[in-house]
Simulated assay, not measured.
Amino acid sequence: MLAKDAPAAAAASASEHAPDPRVKRLLDKLKYKYEVDEDGDYKLVFDLDDDDEDEKKGRSQLVYVRSPVFDYGSHEVREVWAPAYKAKSDEFPAKVANRLLEASQESKLGGWAKQGQYAVFVIKVATNASAEQLDDAINAAIQSADQMEAELTPGKDEF
């Protein structure tokens, strides 16, 4: 009986990790370079070098456009993630947690979430978002995460 159910389980698992072709079309339209990770999410790394801003020299930012789709009532969304901080344990220091809460309140688009040891800036976008809307979400994630990383870990650029 287990052997009979195994292919169905494997197929379900494979489809859970399949990259969403709608994201691929949008990223290709935006001419972004990306790779697909083992979870089927789109991984992008942005070089933040800007001659006008010395503090950004040599910085980069990691961003994920996730393939899974979530729904709530008539809303159907996907997430754009950008990590900015890694704690030494599964608990964030109180000062860091409070700063992330404050930054979430200040944010116009998205907010901070805890993923294990990581603080991740998360923006939920409609699955039928245009390339321009996805680009706005990606840029907001880049700016928010890189600024927070620079604030919380001065002189470091892990993400």
Rank of each mutant, 00 (worst) to 15 (best):
A97Y: 06
G58D: 02
M148W: 07
S74Q: 15
V125M: 12
G111K: 11
V125H: 08
D146S: 15
A82Y: 07
S144G: 07
D71Q: 11
Q61G: 03
G73R: 12
S104V: 13
A84R: 06
K86Q: 12
A150K: 00
E132I: 07
V80F: 03
N139M: 09
F121L: 08
G58E: 04
I123P: 00
G73W: 01
E102S: 15
D136F: 04
K95G: 09
L100H: 00
R78D: 09
L152A: 13
G111R: 10
A131T: 02
A137M: 01
K124N: 05
S60N: 09
A140H: 09
G58S: 05
Q61T: 03
A94R: 14
E151T: 12
A82V: 07
A140M: 04
L62H: 03
Y118F: 11
G116F: 02
G58Q: 02
S89D: 12
R59L: 14
K108Y: 14
L109P: 13
Q147F: 01
N128F: 04
F70Y: 15
S130G: 10
N128L: 02
K57R: 12
K57N: 08
G110W: 03
G73F: 13
Q143G: 09
S67V: 01
E91R: 10
A97L: 15
K86V: 06
A126H: 11
Y64A: 06
L109I: 15
M148T: 06
P93Q: 10
R78E: 10
G110I: 10
K57L: 12
Y118S: 12
V69I: 12
K86R: 11
S67Y: 04
E102G: 08
P93G: 02
A137S: 14
N128W: 02
A87V: 13
G73Y: 13
L62I: 05
S107C: 11
Y64S: 05
E132C: 07
F92L: 15
Q117V: 05
P93C: 10
N98A: 14
V77D: 08
V77K: 04
N139Y: 10
Y72T: 07
S107T: 14
R66H: 04
A82S: 13
S60G: 08
N139Q: 12
S74E: 10
K108E: 15
L101E: 12
P83F: 08
I123A: 06
W81K: 05
Q117P: 13
A126F: 06
V65E: 00
A131D: 10
D135G: 03
F92S: 10
E106K: 13
M148V: 09
E91S: 15
A113P: 01
V77R: 12
P93Y: 06
F92A: 01
F121V: 07
A97K: 15
A140G: 08
A140P: 01
K114G: 03
W112S: 04
W81M: 03
P93F: 07
R78W: 00
N98F: 12
A87I: 11
Y118T: 09
A137R: 02
G116A: 05
K86L: 00
G73K: 08
A84Y: 02
A119Q: 03
A82R: 00
